[in-house]
């Protein structure tokens, strides 16, 4: 069996976001694997370690810079990579088309991805890929068991925890609490340089969503700050909660 993991390169979650000429400024920003995708990579590698799958392929669509995300996944333990060159302005539809076309060529048994990207927060692409390929999907998993051509997944759901089963091949998206991604070892980083990565151009697709403008959220003004005896502070805070926020106890 083969697992394919989709990864997106995103800004570091610690990055401060600023606008330059009406666009999100990217100068000097540290780029990482989307943390939700990193968990999917770890999940794929663990499936190989448990001998559930024989191969872990990592796939990314983006600019040449996305090669760093692929190399990081290879250093963690993925076997080979595929970079689909695509304009970073592609929307969820266009990205799903590009990724699905590459996945179809690979014909994997399990397709993993993070359930959402930390940059655009869309949480659409894994589900769209499943629809394009006509495959079942399960989102936001925190555990997986693979047996008899099926995946049984525990998922974070609205107001509870769900266990659901799908027949493979299927698209499965990860929640960050699934696992703790490993740091690449020095040996892994050295080996990653020799692992094969193929590149191809993205399948053509037009965006369905148009960005009109970017803006910064209204700046929050710092308000009252009290430094005093803790009991005095607590009484003032209680007054503020009752009189300004108008909470009812």
């Amino acid at each position: 069996m083969k697992v394919l993991v989709c990864v997106k390169q995103t800004f570091d979650t610690e990055a401060k976001i600023e606008l330059k000429d009406g666009k999100i400024a990217d100068a000097g920003i540290n780029l990482i694997i989307n943390p939700y995708d990193e968990v999917a990579v770890e999940g794929g590698i663990q499936l190989k370690e448990k001998k559930v799958v024989d191969e872990v392929v990592v796939l990314s669509a983006g600019s040449d810079k996305a090669m760093d995300a692929i190399r990081t996944a290879l250093a963690m333990g993925a076997d080979r990579g595929i970079l689909i060159k695509q304009d970073t302005g592609a929307d969820e539809y266009a990205r799903a088309i590009a990724l699905a076309a590459a996945i179809k060529e690979e014909n994997p048994d399990i397709i993993l991805a993070g359930h959402v990207a930390a940059d655009d927060g869309s949480s659409q692409v894994p589900t769209r890929i499943a629809e394009i390929l006509g495959l079942p999907h399960i989102n936001v998993i925190t555990e997986i068991e693979v047996a008899d051509g099926k995946a049984t997944c525990t998922c974070e759901a609205d107001g509870g925890t769900l266990v659901a089963e799908v027949v493979l091949p299927a698209v499965i998206s990860s929640q960050v609490s699934w696992n703790e991604p490993r740091y690449p070892s020095m040996k892994g980083i050295m080996q990653a340089k020799k692992k094969p990565v193929t590149t191809a151009d993205a399948a053509a697709a037009d965006n369905k969503v148009t960005i009109i403008e970017f803006a910064m959220p209204p700046a929050k003004q710092a308000g009252i700050k009290v430094e005093d005896d803790p009991e005095v502070c607590a009484a003032k805070l209680a007054d503020w909660m009752k009189n300004t926020v108008k909470i009812e106890v």
Partner: peptide, 23 residues
């Protein structure tokens, strides 16, 4: 504190019990 409407510079272990009583 840069985004807080009401900031309390004190130890939560002392503030919260009093806050609960006051509320």
């Amino acid at each position: 504190f840069n985004v807080s409407d009401f900031g309390v510079v004190a130890d939560l272990f002392k503030v919260i019990p009093t806050l609960v009583t006051e509320l």
